[in-house]
Write a protein that binds this DNA or RNA. Structure first.
Length: 496
RNA sequence: GGCCCCAUCGUCUAACGGUUAGGACACAGGAUUUUCAUUCCUGUAAUCGGGGUUCGAUUCCCCGUGGGGCUGCCA
C-alpha cells in the first residue's frame, strides 16, 4: 500500500496532521508498502522558509520517516524516489499541472473564467441575500471560443474552472464512513488553476496522487465535501481514483474544530513541554481509534500490527490532554534507569553544575523516576542533594502526621539518636526503617511522627522521595555526618 | 441559508439484535509499614428525543433535535 502525507509548509506540524500522518504511516508499514511525503506549496503567500525541514524533524521525532519523497538528510530536506519532484512548486515549474488543465479544457470538462474577484464577491453577496448557496454562476461558460481567444490575446487575467455535470449523482465508498453521496448540482465549479498559473489543492491532489501511484489517501474530514470534485477529476482524466479514508476531526472542549485559540496545536509545543514521542503517538492513536481489546499502552511496533482503519471512529474526538499526561507518566516510567538518568542529567546540571559529573545520579534518579511526569521536574525533585535546603518550622510540623510544635523537638532528638545508633556501613533504607519501627514498638511514637520530620529536615520539601531512601543516598554520597547535621539544623530551628 | 458528516458516562471508547451497557482517563473514598507519586481495591457517572421493524433494539429504518465540517484564485 502506498500512502502519503502532504503538508503545506506554512510553519509547524499540527497535531491533527501528525495523527493522519501516523495512520498513513501505520498502514504503509503494515502492508510493507511505502509512506510518501509531498510538500504542497502551491499557495505562494503562505509558504514559510524552513517550514519543510521543521515538519520533517518533528515527524522524525515522532518516529516516522518517509520512505519516498521529501525527507531529512542531516539537517536539510532532500528528495528521493522515482516519481518526483515531490514539491509541488517544482512540479509546477515543469508545467505539469497546466498540461492536465489543458487536457480538461480540450475535453470540455473545464473552462476559462475571466471574472474578477470583485464580481465574484458581489455575486456571492447577492446569492446570500437571496438565501442561496454561494456558487459560481457560470457566466464565463457562455463565452464563445472566439470571445475567449480575444480575452486571452488581450492578456486578461483568468482562472480555469472545472465544469461539474449538474445532473450527475456522485457516490463513493469511504474506508471509514461507508457510502457517501452528492448531487452534482450542489457542487461548485471549482477553480483548478489560479491566475498565477499555480494549481489549487484540488487539481494538484488529483494529478499528484495519481502520478505518485497512491493507493490510499488518509486525510481530515474537512475534505469530505470536496470529494466529489476530486472523484470527477479522476474520471475526466481517465484515471482510477485511490481509496479514501476521511478521518474524524480533532475537537476543542466546546466540540468545535481544534484551534490554536483554545489548544496547543503545534507538535513542537508538546516537544517543548517535555512530552515523550511515545506518549504523544500513543495518545493520538487512541483518539478516534481503539484496538478492540483493553490494551491502552502501545509502542509503534504494536500499533503497526494492531491498527486498522475499520476500527476508526466516525465522530470527532475532543482533544483532552488529561489522558496524554497519564500516558506520559506511564511512558516515563518505562524508560530504562540509565537512560532516564542521562535524560535528566543535563537538566539537573543546568541548575546544579555538580550533577554533570555526579556518580550518584543513577541512584538519585531511581528515587524520582516513579514520582515525576516530566524530566523538567527532576532538578527541583533532587535539589536537596546539591544544596542545603531551607527548612521551615511550618513544614516540619504536620497535623496529619501528628507532629506538633510541642513534640517536634523531642521527635528530632529521637531521630538523631536512632541515626547515631546505626553504624555508617549499615545505612541502608531497610535497616534505617527497621530501626524506626523498633522505636515505634515502644509505644510512644507513631512512624509518621518520626519519618515526617526526618524527611523534611533532609529535603526541606513538602513532597520528595521517602525519608529513609533519601537518608541512605545522602549518607552514601556525603557521609552520615552530613545527614545528622541536617537533623541537628532542624533541631536548632525548634529551639530558637 | 445550502450541501455533507456525526450522535454511549465529564473525556476517549467497548458491546454478531438478547450484557446487571464493559474498559480507560478524570473525580471521590480506601489499602499499600512516613509526604508526594506509583501500584491495587471500591464508588459516582452514559445509550439525545419520538416513531416504526422485531418476541426483543445502544445496535436496523424514518422523522425530529443537537453538534460539526464545507460553502476562497487557502490547504
Amino acid at each position: 500500500m502506498r500512502t502519503r502525507f502532504a503538508p503545506s509548509p506554512t510553519g509547524y506540524l499540527h497535531v491533527g496532521g501528525l495523527r493522519t500522518a501516523l495512520m498513513s504511516w501505520l498502514v504503509a508499514r503494515q502492508s510493507k508498502g511505502a509512506f510518501l511525503l509531498r510538500i504542497e506549496d502551491t499557495d505562494q503567500e503562505r509558504s514559510v522558509a524552513g517550514a519543510t525541514e521543521n515538519i520533517l524533524k518533528t515527524l522524525a521525532w515522532a518516529g516516522m520517516q518517509p520512505d519516498e519523497g521529501v525527507m531529512l538528510q542531516g539537517d536539510s530536506a532532500v528528495q528521493k524516489g522515482t516519481k518526483g519532484p515531490y514539491i509541488q512548486s517544482e512540479r509546477q515549474a515543469q508545467g505539469l499541472y497546466g498540461k492536465y488543465a489543458d487536457e480538461l479544457l480540450k475535453s470540455g470538462h473545464a473552462y476559462h473564467c475571466f471574472c474578477t474577484p470583485q464580481r465574484l464577491e458581489e455575486m456571492r453577496k447577492k446569492q446570500e441575500a437571496r438565501k442561496q448557496a454561494p456558487m459560481y454562476d457560470r457566466q464565463c461558460v457562455k463565452l464563445s471560443p472566439e470571445e475567449v481567444d480575444a480575452k486571452l490575446k488581450a492578456g486578461e487575467r483568468y482562472v480555469i474552472r472545472m465544469k461539474v455535470p449538474h445532473e450527475r449523482i456522485i457516490a463513493f465508498e469511504d474506508e471509514i464512513r461507508g457510502k457517501v453521496q452528492f448531487q452534482g448540482h450542489t457542487v461548485d465549479d471549482q477553480v483548478l488553476l489560479k491566475s498565477d498559473g499555480f494549481p489549487t489543492y484540488h487539481l494538484a491532489h488529483v494529478v499528484d496522487d495519481h502520478l505518485m501511484e497512491i493507493d490510499l489517501v488518509i486525510r481530515g474530514e474537512e475534505w469530505l465535501s470536496s470529494l466529489p470534485k476530486h472523484l470527477l477529476l479522476f474520471e475526466f482524466l481517465g484515471w482510477k481514483p485511490p481509496r479514501y479514508a476521511h478521518v474524524p476531526l480533532l475537537l476543542n472542549k466546546d466540540r468545535t474544530k481544534l484551534s490554536k485559540r483554545q489548544n496547543s496545536v503545534a507538535v513542537e509545543e508538546y516537544m517543548q513541554k517535555g512530552y515523550l514521542p511515545e506518549a504523544l503517538v500513543n495518545f493520538l492513536a487512541l483518539l478516534g481509534w481503539n484496538p478492540g481489546t483493553t490494551q491502552e499502552l502501545f509502542t509503534m511496533e504494536e500499533l503497526v500490527s494492531a491498527f486498522s482503519l475499520d476500527r476508526v471512529q466516525k465522530a470527532g474526538a475532543v482533544f483532552d490532554t488529561e489522558k496524554l499526561d497519564w500516558l506520559q507518566g506511564q511512558w516515563i516510567r518505562k524508560i530504562p534507569l540509565k537512560e532516564f538518568m542521562e535524560r535528566i542529567r543535563p537538566l539537573v546540571a543546568e541548575k546544579y553544575p555538580d550533577a554533570a559529573t555526579d556518580k550518584m545520579l543513577e541512584k538519585k534518579a531511581a528515587l524520582i523516576q516513579e514520582r515525576i511526569t516530566f524530566f523538567a521536574e527532576a532538578p527541583d525533585m533532587l535539589s536537596f542533594f546539591y544544596i542545603k535546603p531551607n527548612v521551615s518550622l511550618d513544614l516540619l510540623i504536620s497535623s496529619k502526621q501528628k507532629v506538633t510544635k510541642e513534640n517536634l523537638p523531642r521527635a528530632l532528638e529521637v531521630i538523631e539518636n536512632i541515626l547515631k545508633s546505626i553504624p555508617g556501613k549499615e545505612w541502608t533504607s531497610d535497616r534505617l526503617l527497621a530501626a524506626f519501627q523498633e522505636k515505634v514498638k515502644e509505644g510512644e511514637w507513631k512512624l509518621g511522627q518520626l519519618l515526617w520530620p526526618l524527611r523534611v529536615a533532609l529535603t526541606g520539601r513538602a513532597y520528595s522521595p521517602g525519608a529513609v531512601e533519601v537518608a541512605e543516598a545522602m549518607a552514601e554520597e556525603q557521609g552520615t555526618e552530613a545527614v545528622l547535621q541536617r537533623v541537628q539544623t532542624a533541631l536548632a530551628l525548634t529551639t530558637s
